[in-house]
Design a protein around this nucleic acid. Structure first.
Length: 312
RNA sequence: CGCGGGGUAGAGCAGCGGUAGCUUGUCGGGCUCAUAACCCGGAGGUCGUGUGGUUCAAAUCCCACCCCCGCAA
């Protein structure tokens, strides 16, 4: 089939590359978000754009595809369009362009975890499993009928970043399989059960702020879920402190003073939570680089009794 | 040219014009029922790069370049 691929970040670029490798379909063009300042102010093309250019595939970038894209896309006359973390909502006018419509690769078991950050939220909420869904795009957010799903277990200490890595190949395989089903007319479109739908917002920087009043388990899940972006953090005095990784030292036991460092030494920094105790293992001060807690305290001691807190 | 911090011993940091220091690790010795224990001693550094500038003297001031990181996206 003649395909137009829409996607932006690494997750999309990986799936894009597998689609190209499969060689079964002709990719007419890649649509991606405009080049934006990233990486400390330098304007950088998206991973999908870089990959497309490497393969001499035309790249289209729209500030707002629903307003500017219809004409150009129509001229390409695609059989189907594929989206993966593209980053813009598509209007009905766009959806109507390809003969087979648009399918989307979504990293959750729909109808659960609709929204832009399904992987991270699944980890943050302590899920033990998630997956990938290939769905037909309809007007609305991740609400169209599902063509197929693949289930994946979440490791007990797995970070969102690690789960991303594992979900990418699963998503790529599922997409290729779905395209086959569609091309041969064997695809089944199962409507989502709206009553079981859950939706979560995109992650914001502030979603990484730790509330020490929560349980050690909840904070542990948060730290994993926002790693590597936006990163969990707290404040030591008025200086932000990033928490890259931690372990649950004690699951139970209520503390009188959540956020207080009860012990600090070469085996880590132990912090009292609302319930249970968390051991910080990889931390990073502003302007410094990430390091093991044991190394950190050699240069900047964190005495017992220090209390981490929210923004001042 | 978006704003800002930083590159000094294996690791983490201090020093910011005048003999290169601290914590930790490491090696050797001692002590102890025991401890992330304690005591004594040693090794380990072209102070990011520059046949750069200023100076009697530069890790320290100035310039250029490289690299790392925080904020903002």
């Amino acid at each position: 089939m003649k395909i137009v691929f829409l996607g932006t970040p690494d997750f999309a670029a990986y799936i894009f590359s597998k689609l190209l490798e499969s060689g079964r379909h002709k990719v007419l063009a890649a649509v991606t978000q405009p080049d934006r300042p990233r990486d400390r102010g330098r304007v950088t093309p998206s991973p999908v754009k870089e990959l497309a250019q490497k393969h001499n595939i035309p790249v289209l970038q729209y500030e707002r595809i629903s307003r500017e894209g219809a004409e150009g896309l129509r001229q390409l006359a695609p059989d189907i369009m594929v989206t993966a973390a593209y980053g813009q909502i598509l209007s009905q006018e766009i959806i109507d362009i390809p003969t087979h419509g648009i399918i989307n690769v979504h990293a959750s078991l729909l109808p659960a975890y609709r929204g832009a950050a399904p992987i991270q939220w699944a980890v943050i909420r302590g899920e033990t499993g998630t997956g990938v869904s290939i769905m037909q795009t309809e007007a609305g957010l991740d609400c169209g009928p599902v063509i197929l799903t693949e289930r994946v277990a979440i490791g007990e200490t797995e970070t969102a970043g690690q789960l991303f890595e594992r979900l990418m190949p699963v998503g790529a395989d599922a997409l290729i399989k779905a395209l086959d089903l569609i091309e041969t007319g064997r695809a089944e479109y199962k409507p989502q059960d709206e009553s079981r739908a859950t939706h979560f917002p995109p992650l914001r920087k502030t979603d990484g702020e730790i509330n020490w009043g929560k349980t050690a388990r909840e904070i542990f899940d948060l730290i994993r879920g926002v790693n590597p972006w936006p990163g969990a953090y707290t404040y030591m005095g008025d200086a932000p402190l990033k928490i890259w990784s931690a372990e649950i030292a004690e699951e139970d036991g209520a503390g009188k003073n959540p956020g207080e460092v009860i012990r600090s030494g070469k085996d880590g920094v132990f912090v009292q939570c609302g319930k249970g105790i968390l051991k910080l293992s990889d931390i990073q001060a502003s302007g410094a680089k990430r390091m093991a807690a044991a190394d950190f305290i050699k240069g900047r001691p964190i005495p017992s009794g220090t209390v981490f807190c929210g923004q001042l």
